[in-house]
Write a protein that binds this DNA or RNA. Sequence first.
DNA 1: CTTGACCTTCCCGTCACTGGAAGCCCCATT
DNA 2: AATGGGGCTTCCAGTGACGGGAAGGTCAAG
Lengths: 129, 129
Amino acid sequence: MNIGDVATSTGLPAKTIRYYEDIGLIKPLRDDNGYRRFRNQDVHKLNFLGRARALGFTIEDCRTLLALYEDETRASADVKRVARQHLTQIEAKIADLNAMQNTLSHLIEACAGDDRPDCPILQDLGGKP
Amino acid sequence: MNIGDVATSTGLPAKTIRYYEDIGLIKPLRDDNGYRRFRNQDVHKLNFLGRARALGFTIEDCRTLLALYEDETRASADVKRVARQHLTQIEAKIADLNAMQNTLSHLIEACAGDDRPDCPILQDLGGKP
DNA sequence: CTTGACCTTCCCGTCACTGGAAGCCCCATT
DNA sequence: AATGGGGCTTCCAGTGACGGGAAGGTCAAG
């Protein structure tokens, strides 16, 4: 399989696949013409990476998870730890965003949104005294 | 006021303040020795920027909002539109993160987290058939 | 033989900073 | 007067995870 086919089949952009090779996540073979040749295991890894990225894991987490995935002697505790740390970060982000959403939606509600200049949003940002 | 005092009083790092000048958000004066001299209006703008950034607005949004803030003839509708677009993006991010959190927390619950290799998290990422 | 779709590498740009180096400037102490 | 320490300046490079686009090689079809 060439990169285009792999891109189609995994849903990952070719650019991303090349990038993953650059940073050593996958190691496809090369044909004589220099084209990358992807084996099933490469495609499988890319699907793994795509799913892990979709869950928001960082590339470094993905590297770790992939190594654990390949390691038959892994302890599931190691996987769980990585996942739990990531979950904690996600929850922190959700909390931040919820706070922003709260503030913003209140301000928006309070704003007339007409052609007059009075605006509680700007008042708040300006440090309404 | 020199940059250090402004950093202390606004809570923004000096680096960030210099950056904001670089990209034209503020225009402090200069003393003869080349030091930036910040007027009250500069500090006020920086506080505005700090609050807008804390609400997650992009720098370009901040630029727009600051311009509206300074424009006595603004229409509050313009402010509201910017805020609503941003709120929409925040809500989209929250939805994404909630989906991740959902999936992740279920997977984590299902994982024994012991010294055995069996792991539903990796099974899921590997595309459990 | 040419066209057009692939593929390659390489370099720059993104966003909002952050770190660090090299070098002035100012004040206080010795 | 020299020194020390802090603060200030600029500039350059790096972050994460790619994406855009240029310049050029390769391949199958007509």
